[in-house]
Design a protein around this nucleic acid. Structure first.
Lengths: 155, 155
DNA sequence: AAATCTTTGACTAATACTGACTATTATTAT
DNA sequence: ATAATAATAGTCAGTATTAGTCAAAGATTT
């Protein structure tokens, strides 16, 4: 039974709340005060323990009335497929390959026809017309990876 | 759970009225008095929450009998609205504005929740993380315009 | 000893709020 | 008519209030 450092304790505290409710909303400085740590440690706890891989989505707002909200989401079953697709894409992908990836997601019923069409429009050559092929392919990779990461969970 | 700051509360108040009627017309000083804020904060609320990206058009008049009128519009139904939206996007758009636009399309029933979520993932800051803000905003603009054009000619 | 994880704080970024000053329109006085 | 005054809204820059980043220092594990 290790895990007595303050980050683990804060993690436990937040997860206890999340055991009862779908989400938890905090004011960063309040939690920091409560556990007597600097505010940025809250960011550390979130970054290391409330990742999307663990099934958490985090939103925040700065300024007056600011907050950090952690939401527990249901992870999908076929995460391995997404992971391997992300690996295949790497940091650069052609329009042709991207279209075929979207097509296979459609074949696998991960996306329906309209969703596939929408996503195709985001990665189309005509949409991403920087006059620079290398950049275009890199941008397309980022978009696809972003989508695949989103598909890890349901809303 | 959120909505702690007074701007959010004023926003909510105005949108509540707009839920029933096509438009709302206010006297700036009255609303400012009602919520105990300085008049210019009403401008702040409008400028940050009732933009064309959010699906609102605002008109006003100064002098005696002056007013501020907020009208809800549908982004895709009206060519002029769509044109001014694309003009506002230009070749660069922030994540916040892009999210607003996608949210407006959802409210207009152009997109369902899942589609909006997918598109949001394509333009998210976390997705388009070149370490260069200018490029990030430019890419986002291209993606959004690509999607808007796709939606315009979808059927 | 090296590698990894945790803690800290200085600096940055985003959002909200305020008030002095400006601009516009309507009304009243001359 | 024209000018002065009143009654509105707009702008902008400064301050306040939050959260985020990052690298260095410290602690723990391997």
């Amino acid at each position: 039974m290790q895990g007595q450092n303050i980050s683990d304790i804060i993690e436990k505290y937040l997860k206890q709340i999340l055991a009862d409710s779908e989400e938890v909303e905090i004011r960063r400085s309040e939690i920091a005060d409560q556990f007597d740590v600097v505010p940025s440690q809250i960011n550390y706890v979130i970054k290391t323990r409330f990742t999307i891989q663990n099934g958490y989505v985090v939103e925040s707002k700065r300024g007056g009335g600011g907050y950090i909200r952690i939401e527990k989401v249901k992870l999908l079953d076929d995460i391995d497929v997404l992971d391997s697709l992300i690996q295949v894409i790497g940091d650069s992908v052609s329009e042709r390959d991207a279209i075929s990836i979207i097509g296979s997601l459609y074949e696998d019923d991960v996306l329906n026809k309209r969703e596939a069409g929408l996503l195709a429009s985001t990665i189309a050559k005509s949409t991403l017309d920087f006059g620079e092929r290398r950049l275009e392919d890199q941008v397309r990779a980022k978009i696809l990876v972003g989508v695949l990461n989103h598909l890890r969970y349901e809303d």
